[in-house]
C-alpha cells in the first residue's frame, strides 16, 4: 500500500537519517573547506568515534531492553584511572585487564540494584553515577595518573588501512559483533521483546531478569573498554575521563534511532549515530564554530529527528515489531522446550 503523505516522506527521512546527515555534512564540508573531503578526515572522524562509540554501544542493548544506564561515564573514569595507576605495580597489560574488570564489576553492581533490589534503572544508575564519579576523585586525589611508559598505548591511534586506526577497528568490530547478536540470535531477538512489552515477554516465558542483568553487565564492560582505550591511547588515567561523555553517548544512540522507550534499535544505527555526530563535530571545528554553538546544533538535530520519528508514525512500527518479537520469542521458547 503506497500512501504518499507527510508520514511516508518523514518515514523515508527518518529511516535514512544517518545517510542524510552524513551527506549534509559532506556537502557542506566540501563546499566550505578545500581539504575536508579527504581520507584523513574520515580516518580522524572514525578514530575520534572509538571511545564515545564504546560507551554508546554498551548503551544500545540497555535502551532496547527499555532501561537506562547513566553510570557509564563514571565507570569509564574508574577504569581509565585503574588502567594507568596500576601499571607500575602490575605491568601494562594486567593493569588494562583490571580496567576491564572494574567495568564488569560496576555493571554487576548496577544489575543487582535493578534486578534484585528492584530499583528503577534511572535511579539506580544515577546513584552509581554519583558514587563512581566521587570514588574516582577520592582514589586519585583528584589528580590524573600519568603513565611512566607513555609510548605503550600509542599504537592504538596509528594509521591502519588508510582510513582506520586500531582503536576504530575495535569499535567497528564490536558494533558488527553486537549486530550479529541482536539480529541473528534468539537471545538477541528476545531482548527486543523484553523492551517492547515486559508482560508479553514474561508470558512468553523469557527470563526477563536475566536479560536485564546481562545488558547492565555488558554496558559496564563496554564502559570499561572505553576507559581502557582512552587511558592507553592518551597515556593518562584521568578520574574525570568519562564525565563529559555520557551525554554525547546518549545523543549518538538516539540519533542512530534507538528508542529511549525500548524495543527498538540496532548497534549499526549506533555506529552510524556516533560517526554522524563525530563528523558534525569535526566539520564545526574545521569551520571554527565555538563549542557552545555546536551543542545548539546537536540539540536542534535531536528535536528534529525525534519529531520526524513521531510524525512518521513510529508507534505503528513499534506495535508490529512488538508482536513480531513476542511471536519469535514464543517460537524460540517452544523450540527450546520441545
Amino acid at each position: 500500500m503506497m500512501r504518499l503523505n507527510i508520514g511516508t516522506i518523514g518515514n523515508v527521512v527518518v529511516r535514512y537519517r544517518l545517510l542524510v546527515m552524513l551527506a549534509a555534512v559532506a556537502v557542506f564540508g566540501g563546499w566550505t573547506l578545500d581539504d575536508f573531503l579527504t581520507l584523513t578526515t574520515l580516518q580522524s572522524i572514525l578514530d575520534r568515534a572509538a571511545v564515545v562509540g564504546f560507551l554508546a554501544l554498551g548503551l544500545t542493548p540497555i535502551l532496547i531492553a527499555g532501561q537506562i544506564d547513566l553510570s557509564i561515564g563514571s565507570i569509564m573514569s574508574l577504569a581509565a584511572y585503574a588502567t594507568i595507576a596500576l601499571q607500575p605495580d602490575l605491568g601494562n597489560v594486567p593493569a588494562a585487564f583490571i580496567g576491564l574488570g572494574v567495568g564488569i564489576l560496576a555493571g554487576v553492581v548496577n544489575a543487582l540494584a535493578v534486578v534484585v533490589f528492584k530499583v528503577t534503572s534511572l535511579v539506580a544508575t544515577l546513584a552509581t553515577l554519583l558514587i563512581g564519579a566521587s570514588l574516582a576523585l577520592l582514589i586519585s586525589n583528584g589528580q590524573p595518573a600519568s603513565s611512566a611508559d607513555p609510548l605503550f598505548g600509542l599504537f592504538l591511534t596509528d594509521n591502519f588501512l588508510a582510513i582506520l586506526t586500531p582503536r576504530s577497528v575495535l569499535f567497528i568490530g564490536a558494533a558488527l559483533l553486537m549486530f550479529v547478536w541482536l539480529k541473528g540470535t534468539p537471545s538477541g531477538r528476545n531482548l527486543y521483546a523484553v523492551g517492547s512489552s515486559m508482560p508479553a515477554a514474561i508470558s512468553a516465558g523469557i527470563n526477563v531478569n536475566g536479560y536485564i542483568a546481562g545488558v547492565f553487565v555488558l554496558s559496564g564492560f563496554c564502559a570499561g573498554a572505553a576507559g581502557v582505550i582512552q587511558a592507553l591511547s592518551s597515556a593518562t588515567g584521568s578520574p574525570i575521563a568519562g564525565s563529559v561523555l555520557l551525554i554525547p553517548a546518549i545523543t549518538a544512540v538516539v540519533i542512530g534511532g534507538t528508542r529511549l522507550e525500548g524495543g527498538r534499535g540496532s548497534s549499526l544505527a549506533t555506529l552510524g549515530g556516533v560517526v554522524a555526530l563525530g563528523a558534525l563535530t569535526t566539520l564545526s571545528e574545521y569551520n571554527g564554530v565555538p563549542s557552545y554553538t555546536q551543542a545548539v546544533y546537536t540539540g536542534l538535530i535531536l528535536i528534529l529527528l525525534i519529531t520526524l520519528d513521531r510524525i512518521a508514525g513510529g508507534d505503528e512500527g513499534k506495535t508490529t515489531r512488538t508482536l513480531r518479537s513476542a511471536a519469535v520469542a514464543k517460537q524460540t521458547q517452544q523450540g527450546g522446550t520441545s
Partner: peptide, 18 residues
C-alpha cells in the same frame, strides 16, 4: 573546554587537516 581528552582528539584532527 578544559578537557585534555577533547584536546587530544582535536590535536589529532588538526594534524589530519595538514
Amino acid at each position: 573546554e578544559f578537557s585534555p581528552q577533547t584536546g587530544a582528539d582535536q590535536l589529532n584532527s588538526c594534524v589530519s587537516r595538514k
